Simulated assay, not measured.
Amino acid sequence: MVVYILFSEKLGRYYVDHTMDIEKRLEVHNQGGKKYTTKGIPWELIKTYLCSNRSEAVQLERKIKKRGIKRYLEEN
């Protein structure tokens, strides 16, 4: 399982989520397959974190969102 952070230069915003297949998910985001990220195309993959299972990935994703994605990146 992978937690990933994307950045849209067009919007100046970050996006965090988790997936099993990062290449496929990035393709979906950049083809407009996710409603929330459609306006930010193109998305750039900034960072990935490998997790041993879905539970760990969800916990990390929540931690990143709670801290703020930009702040989390600056601190780690």
Rank of each mutant, 00 (worst) to 15 (best):
M1L: 02
M1Y: 02
V2E: 11
V2F: 12
Y4K: 04
I5Y: 05
I5S: 08
F7N: 07
E9K: 13
K10C: 10
K10Q: 10
L11H: 02
L11G: 09
L11N: 06
R13D: 08
R13K: 14
Y14K: 03
Y15Q: 12
V16E: 05
D17R: 11
H18K: 14
H18F: 15
M20V: 01
D21W: 02
I22E: 13
I22C: 10
E23G: 15
R25N: 06
R25F: 00
L26Y: 07
L26K: 13
L26D: 08
L26N: 08
E27Y: 10
V28M: 11
V28T: 14
V28L: 10
H29T: 04
Q31V: 03
G32C: 12
G32I: 06
Y36E: 13
T37C: 03
T37W: 00
T38H: 00
T38D: 06
K39D: 14
K39P: 13
K39R: 13
G40F: 01
G40M: 09
P42S: 03
W43Q: 11
E44A: 10
E44Q: 13
L45W: 01
L45P: 01
L50Q: 14
L50E: 15
L50V: 10
L50W: 00
C51I: 03
C51L: 06
C51R: 13
N53V: 08
N53C: 15
R54Q: 13
S55E: 12
E56W: 00
E56I: 06
E56R: 08
A57S: 14
V58S: 07
V58D: 06
V58P: 01
Q59E: 15
L60K: 10
L60V: 05
E61Y: 02
R62N: 15
K63N: 10
K63C: 03
K63W: 00
I64W: 01
K66G: 04
K66V: 01
K66R: 14
R67V: 02
R67S: 13
R67A: 14
G68L: 04
I69Y: 08
K70M: 02
R71G: 00
Y72H: 15
L73H: 06
L73T: 08
E74S: 09
N76G: 01
